[in-house]
Design a protein around this nucleic acid. Structure first.
Lengths: 243, 243
DNA sequence: ACAAAAGTGTTTTAGGTACACCCATGC
DNA sequence: GCATGGGTGTACCTAAAACACTTTTGT
């Protein structure tokens, strides 16, 4: 992998990448009843941004997105969906990237390729929180999970991108049955319901939810899980694709 | 407007446009119970392609799509939706564009910007067939409607783009209530139903369809239309947005 | 009179909501 | 025993599907 944001040296010209095009990824995770996304914090600037990357000249853009995801989470088998292209010129603002590069001690030319206008092809990804290992890129000193419910201010229009990603996730949740990607291999019906409630931002009726999920024919019931709770042990379930 | 595909002279360098990025438009119309799309035929090559364009350096990409649409149809108030970015390197094939340019009598350099790899941001549009005035660009000698049901072979991966546009239209039809954009200002319930049936590729029950449409509260009933048919005169309806 | 398309009514079915009941477990 | 969370059963309501009936027009 030779992303300019990963290699030790930052390319001065952007050679080898499609110019003016970037990948931004909204990586969702779910932990302790909270929906979270992965953010990078840049060194000495307090700037927070979505994991991003560029597209190699001989690379498919969807593969570039998978590469970014693999670099930031260590995971390769991830649910990933392109959801929008942000291409307004108003989103172009070289100031934050300049601040990041200067904080890195770089001499920054006004014409540096990273300061030019970029069109962002945005993806959202759903990962198993317990399996992801966040990993910062060369320009950032941290890569961590942040609660979606109390998100700090983000760089550029990244807040807007997150908002649109969440809207897409909400409408896709029923249509594409993708929620399971946010859970571990096996899970209880209660965990699944709390996930749905968190994503949709509303409470769901327990019995109806259970019946609907089971009627979809995509859940395999396993043995009961004795977690030591003061109640009946729930069944564990596994998602089974029907292909 | 100074698109290189519209101006009399074709720019040799692509100056003024975002490099490597193109807009492709699947423009749907509906006429005589057929779903149609607008295609360009290039001079002396038998090559058919989707209406396309590039993005000016100071232009929003959605505005670029509107500009392409206005140039090809003469319409400015059009339903338009971004639906996918096609960015596989395998879609890069300079041969057809070279043939088009050579057929135009141009001397074509191997490094000509139009022969390089492009990432396509694709849009679908819904237009009122009776109001659109197809208008070819400078490289093509015709811009006309083609039946979606019996589409000829298209350039590059444009067949694939059309397929994905149609799939998106089908799923959006119920969710976004956009079908009316394909009809004239007023229409009968029968016309609307035949439109839905054509798009979805399946027959719908007449009474259920009528009730469902009326229950949405987005149709205003006007006077009856006496078309001279050997049957009861249908009501005319108009779409009313509820904002 | 009849066919054709339009508008409306009726019955049946399916899915969802709401609520109730019982089960298993730890305190 | 009791609170807690889990699984299932039942009544109810709404929306869709399927079908029937009536209306209006031209031939």
């Amino acid at each position: 992998m030779n992303s300019p944001l990963r290699s030790k040296k930052i390319d001065q010209t952007g050679t080898g990448y499609l110019p003016g095009l970037a990948i931004d990824c909204v990586i969702f995770g779910f932990h302790e009843q909270q929906l979270k996304i992965l953010l990078l914090e840049y060194q000495n600037t307090n700037l927070l941004a979505l994991p991003a990357g560029f597209i190699q000249e001989e690379e498919n853009i969807n593969d570039a997105a998978r590469r970014v995801l693999a670099e930031r989470t260590g995971l390769t088998d991830i649910y990933l969906d392109q959801f929008y292209v942000f291409g307004d010129q108003s989103r172009h603002d070289p100031a934050p990237m300049r601040a990041i590069m200067e904080a890195k001690g770089m001499a920054v030319d006004d014409n540096h390729w990273l300061l030019r206008r970029f069109v962002s092809v945005s993806y959202y990804a759903l990962v198993d929180f317990t399996r992801a290992v966040p990993n910062p890129d060369v320009l950032s000193d941290s890569c961590d999970w942040y609660d979606l419910a109390s998100l700090p201010t983000l760089m550029l229009d990244h807040q807007h991108i997150v908002q649109k990603a969440l809207e897409t996730l909400r409408t896709d949740l029923d249509r594409k049955l993708i929620g399971f990607n946010l859970l571990a291999e096996t899970f209880t019906m209660g965990e699944l319901q709390r996930l749905y409630e968190t994503i949709l931002g509303q409470e769901l009726h327990r019995s109806g939810f259970q019946r609907k999920m089971l009627s979809l024919g995509i859940l395999e019931r396993l043995e009961k899980q004795y977690n030591g709770g003061a109640h009946k042990a729930p069944y564990a379930y596994r998602f089974v694709s029907d292909k």
